[in-house]
Design a binder for these strands. Sequence first.
RNA 1: GGAGAGGUGGCAGAGCGGUUGAAUGCGCCGGUCUCGAAAACCGGUAUGGCCUUUUGGUCAUCGGGGGUUCGAAUCCCCCCCUCUCCGCCA
Length: 496
Amino acid sequence: MIDLKALRDDPERFREGARRKNTDVDIDRLLELDTRQRELSTRQQELKAEQNRLSKEMGPQIGRLIGQLKKASGEQRGAIEREVEQLKAGPQKLKEQIEELDGQIAEIEPELREILLRVPLPPDPDVPVGRSSEDNVEIRRWSSAGFDLARLFEDNKGFSPKSHIELVHELGLADFERGVKLGGARHYVLKGLGARLHYAVLRYAMDFMIQKHGFTPMSVPVIVREDMMVGTGFFPGGRDQAYHIEETRRGAGEDLFLTGTGEVSLMGLHQGEILDEADLPLTYCTTSTCFRREAGAAGKDTAGLYRIHQFDKVEQVVILPADEGESRAWHQKMLGFVEAFLQSLELPYRLLQCCTGDLGAKNADMIDVECWMPGRGRSALRADASGNDAKQDIGSESGATQGDIGSESRSTLGAFGETHSASRLYDYQCRRLNMRYREGGESGKGATVFCHSLNNTVAASPRILIPLLEIHQNEDGSVTVPGALRGYMGGIERIG
RNA sequence: GGAGAGGUGGCAGAGCGGUUGAAUGCGCCGGUCUCGAAAACCGGUAUGGCCUUUUGGUCAUCGGGGGUUCGAAUCCCCCCCUCUCCGCCA
């Protein structure tokens, strides 16, 4: 949530921010409602002050009269009762006026709140302006020795690559048919060494963050209250993306939601708390199962492990004092962790500076990491082999960007595919979550300040298995397990 | 799942229709005393909003929401959470 005061002071900054983010939000309406709301509540507040004053006076008087009433007889009673009624009449009028204002305020509040929750955080001035992911700007790319991203996979390795779909079929690592039988479309089963590889990546990613970078591991709920979804900024905008557990429909409890990322619970941990500045920054990581409805993605990436309803993800989150420099520095650090992680797995990747149109409401800045997927961006020719829908063109949807290799050969193209996303949010999330710290430490008298937060993926599997299998495949159809994972695979060096 | 007890300030804990934003203790901050420290004593110590140039004023908040009342931490309703006992169980 943005700071309403800041919006009053400089509405143009937020109008421009929304424009750059390609977001349609009626800021003038918000200002209008805000002004009206403040007028009404100021007036109401004055009435309440008067009411409180009267009440304090009347309390003892009425108490005394009621005492008399008990002892009084017949005629006296009537006189006393009338006196009490008279006393009550004054505040009664105030009460009616207050209630009327209450009604007026209640009328505008939901709309005000709804708009306020949707006003995006303005992007930082150095974020390139653009409309969609097409306008994202590559920052740098990395590739392991012996693999040249400027050349085709074939030219690098001397053979034509298989897609991960073919590989998991042939090596018996996944079972899509039974996944769909169990959970419907976009479900899958990882089996045997496929499952083992999945867990190996997750455990390695977790240890990487804990042991190398001192992050605190957490095991957190994936079922959360609506507050948490709103507080972390996923609602109301992303309501369609979350699975909704409608407990109230069975007449009990409150509705709950399945989280689409560990970020929700990691950030929600300290909701409503005032933290000790000495404890900051808090650095947390978690492995959690993530659930996404993929609403609006019908027909996209229907085959394979790319876009699915359920996956596991190691997520990193940092909560720090409010400081732009710190925020920027940590953003780079968190990206650095991911780069080192991918390099240790010998997975070529690139960093993409997301443009303003691709940021989402809560980010001031966002940098995506995309891994090179040699089997991606290929036409139906190959996908056909796995018995899946032959009409789709896997390379043309958002989230994947065609390699700039310039080859016309459809069977050997390859593409980058998004595997990580590093967000910098300033106080947008912490303001919603009411998560603060006291300046100058625990015993200080400093003001309470909203924390800043950042988050980034460490590894999301099975999506990360796509480059892992495709990059490390061998000509004989086997896949070499990168050295970093062997310890988590019982020493297995090669699959198949 | 059944029965009961409870949720109050940083913590513990009183209050159970009016003068209570809230006793008291602990903690914390400042001061007195002291060469210094401790002890003792004195004073201070919630969060948010709105109005105000400063000073200050005012409203809201006693798990959350709604209601009764001139007036609610206190009464009523719904929900959430915690604890105890019984039952069941990974």
